[in-house]
Amino acid sequence: MNENKLEDSKGFAALLRLVRPKQWIKNGFIFLPLFFGGALLHTDALLAGLITFFAYSFAASSIYCFNDIYDVEADRRHPVKCHRPIASGAVSIKQAYGLMFLMFALSMGVCSLLGSWETMGIVIFYWLLNLGYCAKFKQYAIIDVCIVAF
């Protein structure tokens, strides 16, 4: 039974690595308008910022899953990326798709707490743009630069 717990914890750790929560720190830019607008200590604004942060972070995690699914063969040949959860075989492609859709559903669920169609639209636009980027746009230098700058 201890062996099953160990395997479960390794599986969970691989799934957690796939969603890359360490990358979420970059999403802290969401709080900049609150800071510069002097609203960082206003409870309502801070709560809206936190909800937006998590909605955006879950969407980003969904994209990380898709990117690793899409690039799995290239990642397997790469000396560093071969250790990523899908490329190494720690997470199956089917599991990764499930996690991808779960992360996007969490993003939309959290976003719906705001009651803001504008914020939800921005998160969906970000998600679709990045799906396109992972699948095709990054192959074109000018489009790649524009999307990364955006």
Rank of each mutant, 00 (worst) to 15 (best):
N2W: 09
N2L: 12
E3Y: 10
N4W: 08
D8L: 14
D8A: 15
S9D: 12
K10C: 06
K10I: 09
A13M: 13
A14N: 04
R20N: 06
P21C: 10
K22M: 12
K22H: 13
K22Q: 14
I25V: 15
N27C: 10
F29K: 10
F29E: 09
I30L: 12
P33G: 11
P33C: 10
P33W: 07
L34G: 10
F36Y: 12
G37A: 08
L41M: 13
T43Y: 14
D44L: 10
A45C: 11
A45D: 10
A48Y: 05
F53P: 02
F53E: 01
F54V: 05
A55M: 00
A55Q: 00
S57Y: 03
S57E: 02
F58E: 00
A59H: 01
A59W: 00
A60R: 03
A60W: 00
S61C: 04
S61R: 02
S61L: 00
S62M: 01
S62T: 05
S62Q: 01
I63Q: 01
I63E: 00
I63C: 02
I63H: 03
C65M: 05
F66L: 15
N67A: 08
I69M: 08
Y70K: 15
D71C: 10
D71Q: 08
V72W: 07
V72S: 10
E73D: 15
R76W: 07
R76G: 09
R77N: 15
R77C: 15
R77Y: 10
R77V: 13
P79E: 06
P79C: 09
V80W: 11
V80Q: 14
K81W: 05
C82P: 06
C82A: 14
C82W: 09
R84L: 04
R84F: 02
R84W: 02
R84A: 03
P85R: 02
P85C: 06
I86M: 02
I86Y: 00
A90F: 04
V91W: 00
V91T: 05
K94H: 11
K94W: 08
K94F: 11
K94A: 14
Q95V: 04
Q95R: 11
Q95H: 08
Y97R: 13
M100E: 10
F101M: 07
F101T: 07
L102G: 00
F104Y: 09
L106Q: 07
S107T: 07
C111K: 06
S112D: 08
S112V: 08
L113W: 03
S116W: 05
E118D: 15
E118F: 13
I122V: 15
V123R: 00
V123T: 05
F125D: 07
Y126R: 03
L128S: 07
N130I: 02
N130L: 11
L131D: 04
G132P: 06
Y133M: 01
Y133R: 00
C134F: 02
A135V: 06
A135L: 12
K136D: 09
F137E: 01
K138V: 06
Q139H: 14
Y140K: 10
Y140D: 10
Y140V: 14
A141D: 13
I142H: 12
D144H: 04
I147G: 00
I147E: 03
I147A: 05
V148H: 09
F150V: 02
F150H: 09
F150Q: 06
